[in-house]
Simulated scan of single mutants.
Amino acid sequence: MVFLIVLMVITDSVEYGQLKLGHRDESLALSVRPLIDKFGGAVSNGVVGQIAIMAGMTTGATAASITAAGRTNFKLMMFAVPAVMLVIAIIIFASKVILSEQKHAEIVAKLEQTWGKKYSGDQDAKQANGSIELPTPIAGQLMNLSEVNDQTFSSGSVGQGFAIKPSDGRVLAPFDATVRQVFTIRHAVGLVGDNGVVLLIHIGLGTVKLKGTGFISYVTEGQKVKKGQELIEFWDPTIKKAGLDDTVIMVVTNSKDFKNIKLTAQAGTEVKAEDNVMSLEAKAKAASK
């Protein structure tokens, strides 16, 4: 049970590390667990060996040769002292480890709001040129981003974009791209397009609380995807049953690289996946000296 708790805490700390360091070190973080297992096993074996010697359990010892004092010492050191140490460990854990589910949800929310900023001008982000038509990755009713019931997205602080009230649970790639992040809870995916668009696709509001329940991801970080390829599938009734908003949000996180960003379809109309609904015009890049 102790090692399972350690594994869960280490797993949740991956997003915390990403928020603080700016890069994701999942494999490095998870490699700590077997190190703890081996170290813990070595320490426990050493302690048990020393306690056995203190109790008189040396080579050639028999049950009759172990004194009453030795038996008492053995029981105290093997049962009473570990029980006290475990209580102390629980108190330290409860007071120092503050990465609760609520805190983890807050960290993931912050990552969603900031992750795409660093990919503007990234080596995987091709320089955008001319006018670009942006399709919707999912079918449903088109919404203005300002209608989204979330101040962070509706204010445009994350970037310009649009939203869809979904009639389907399949999220498709709107253009050829590289998958730069699949959030562990599978409710969002970040794409760096071959067309220069850095796009965050976010399913629902507050869906981080579902911890991935009802979501299936079909892509991995670093994977190349083609337009129309399925990225994520979700079960909409799961979101609604939890009392959450199922609005799917698409945000161009490198909006500063574009101008004349506008919807080309009227908000409130029903659209199909891969229908063009927004146009963007790349800003002219200053010539390098």
Rank of each mutant, 00 (worst) to 15 (best):
L7P: 00
F3Q: 12
T220S: 14
I5D: 10
Q123Y: 09
I66E: 00
V87Q: 05
I239C: 03
Q50D: 03
V192G: 00
V171D: 08
F74V: 00
T253H: 01
S155P: 11
L145R: 09
I88T: 02
K289L: 14
G121R: 00
K20S: 07
R170C: 12
G40M: 11
V84G: 15
G159S: 05
P237Q: 05
K256F: 08
F162R: 05
K103V: 15
I216M: 10
D257V: 10
L142I: 09
N149P: 09
L244T: 00
I10N: 06
K241D: 03
T220M: 10
A139S: 15
V171T: 02
I90V: 11
D122N: 08
I88F: 10
G159T: 01
L21Q: 08
G190K: 00
I53A: 12
H202I: 03
T67I: 14
V225G: 02
D25S: 06
T67R: 01
G22V: 11
G204D: 13
P82M: 09
G49R: 00
A55Q: 01
D150M: 08
K289V: 13
K283M: 13
E15N: 04
I239T: 00
F39M: 11
N260A: 15
I51R: 01
T269V: 15
T72N: 09
G22Y: 08
L30Q: 03
A163Q: 03
L191G: 02
L172S: 06
I249N: 05
M278L: 10
G121S: 04
V47N: 02
G196H: 07
G156T: 04
I53Y: 01
G159L: 01
E233K: 14
P174S: 07
A69E: 09
R170L: 13
H23Q: 06
F3G: 05
K20D: 01
I203G: 07
L30A: 04
L231S: 02
E270K: 12
L7E: 10
I88A: 14
S65N: 06
F3C: 07
D168I: 01
N254S: 08
K241G: 01
K227I: 15
Q181H: 14
D25A: 07
T58E: 11
